[in-house]
């Protein structure tokens, strides 16, 4: 008699499912807390620092993963290495152009002369811990480049996938 009613009732499964969402989310938030915090901070940065925050908030560089990056490369996207010159010389992603964030002010005019603003740019640096690629990407957007993305995994993610570097010196 009481055998049928729990089978038909959707309440238990729905409550269970909701609990799974809550518990799963909490685990996910705990594991990825640092990453999410960084994304939040970055958002706050782009909101407060710029006088035209409204405009820029919609023009944040798009983060891309390794697979998207590999899809973009044959489509004439230009890779930009935001790391220091020395790190670049020790090895970089194939075809990447070096534009250290520290020298951006000095080097950007040359880039603008050479690379048209409709070019897709993909900026990277030394992985998730490094902000230079994001800062440089924002600067490039301000400078009129329309499609700027950030390969956040950077050089470590590229290497971890077993992909070759260019210009590796021992």
């Amino acid at each position: 008699m009481s055998d049928e009613s729990p089978k038909l009732s959707l309440v238990r499964p729905l409550v269970d499912a909701a609990l799974m969402v809550v518990v799963g989310s909490l685990i996910g938030l705990a594991v990825n807390g640092r990453l999410l915090w960084e994304v939040l901070e970055r958002h706050a940065l782009s909101r407060n620092d710029e006088p035209v925050a409204e405009e820029l908030a919609t023009r944040l560089p798009l983060p891309i993963g390794l697979e998207e990056l590999r899809g973009l490369l044959p489509a004439n996207a230009l890779l930009i290495d935001a790391r220091h010159r020395e790190s670049y010389r020790r090895g970089h992603l194939p075809g990447a152009r070096n534009l250290p964030w520290g020298d951006a002010g000095k080097l950007l005019p040359a880039l603008r002369d050479e690379i048209p603003p409709q070019t897709t740019l993909v900026v990277y640096c030394s992985g998730y811990g490094c902000e230079d690629s994001f800062l440089l990407a924002q600067r490039l957007l301000q400078d009129g480049y329309r499609d700027v993305r950030v390969f956040e995994g950077g050089l470590p993610a590229w290497q971890a996938a077993g992909l070759p570097l260019e210009g590796v010196r021992p």
Binding site: A17, M20, V21, V23, G24, S25, I27, G28, L29, V31, N32, L35, L36, V39
Partner: peptide, 15 residues
């Protein structure tokens, strides 16, 4: 996007 990416995998693994 980031929030969903951080939580969805764990919800999937848990269930």
């Amino acid at each position: 996007n980031y929030l969903a990416a951080a939580t969805l995998p764990y919800i999937e693994m848990l269930a």
